Amino acid sequence: MKLPVIDFHCDVLSKMREDGGISFQNDPKLDVTYDRLIQGGVSMQCFAIYLSEKWGIPKYEYILDQIDAFKNRVMKTGGGVRWLRWKEDADELAHTIQHPAAAKGGQGPVPWGLLSVEGADGFEGSLFYVRMCYEMGVRFLGITWNYANWAADGVLEKRNGGFTEKGRKLIDLSNDIGLLLDVSHLSQAGFWELTERTNRPFIASHSNAKAVCPHPRNLTDEQVRAIVAMDGRIGMTFVPWFVRAGGEGPVRPQELLPHIEHFCELGAEKHLMVGSDFDGIDTWIEGLEHPGLYPAFAELLCKHYSEDLVRNWLSGNALSYLGTHLPSKGSGAAH
Rank of each mutant, 00 (worst) to 15 (best):
M1T: 04
M1H: 09
L3V: 01
L3N: 03
D7G: 06
H9D: 07
V12R: 02
G20Q: 11
S23P: 05
P28G: 08
K29H: 11
D35G: 05
D35I: 01
D35Y: 01
Q39A: 15
S43V: 03
M44A: 15
Q45G: 02
F47P: 01
I49D: 03
I49C: 05
E53A: 14
K54Y: 08
G56D: 12
E61P: 03
Y62C: 07
I67F: 08
F70A: 12
F70P: 02
N72E: 12
V81D: 07
R82H: 08
R85E: 13
R85F: 01
W86T: 00
E88L: 12
A90Q: 06
H95V: 13
A101R: 10
A102H: 04
G105V: 00
Q107R: 14
W112G: 08
V117F: 10
E118S: 10
L127N: 09
C133E: 11
R139L: 08
F140R: 08
F140V: 04
F140W: 10
N146M: 04
Y147N: 14
W150E: 05
W150M: 03
A152Q: 05
G154A: 09
V155Y: 00
E157K: 13
K158V: 15
N160G: 10
K166D: 14
K169P: 07
L173Q: 11
S174P: 06
N175I: 10
V183H: 07
H185K: 12
Q188P: 07
A189L: 09
F191C: 09
W192Y: 15
W192V: 12
R200V: 04
A204Q: 06
H206G: 01
H206T: 05
A209I: 05
A209G: 03
A209F: 02
R217F: 04
D221Q: 06
G232W: 00
R244A: 14
A245T: 14
E248L: 10
G249T: 00
P250Q: 12
L257S: 05
L257H: 02
P258C: 12
H259L: 07
E261I: 13
H262A: 06
H262M: 11
C264I: 14
C264W: 06
E265H: 11
L266W: 00
E269K: 13
K270P: 00
H271N: 15
S276K: 01
I281D: 02
E286Q: 14
G287C: 09
E289P: 09
P291L: 11
L293I: 04
P295Y: 02
K303W: 09
H304V: 15
S315Q: 01
S315W: 05
G316I: 04
A318C: 09
S320H: 05
L322T: 03
T324W: 00
K329W: 09
A333P: 13
A334Q: 12
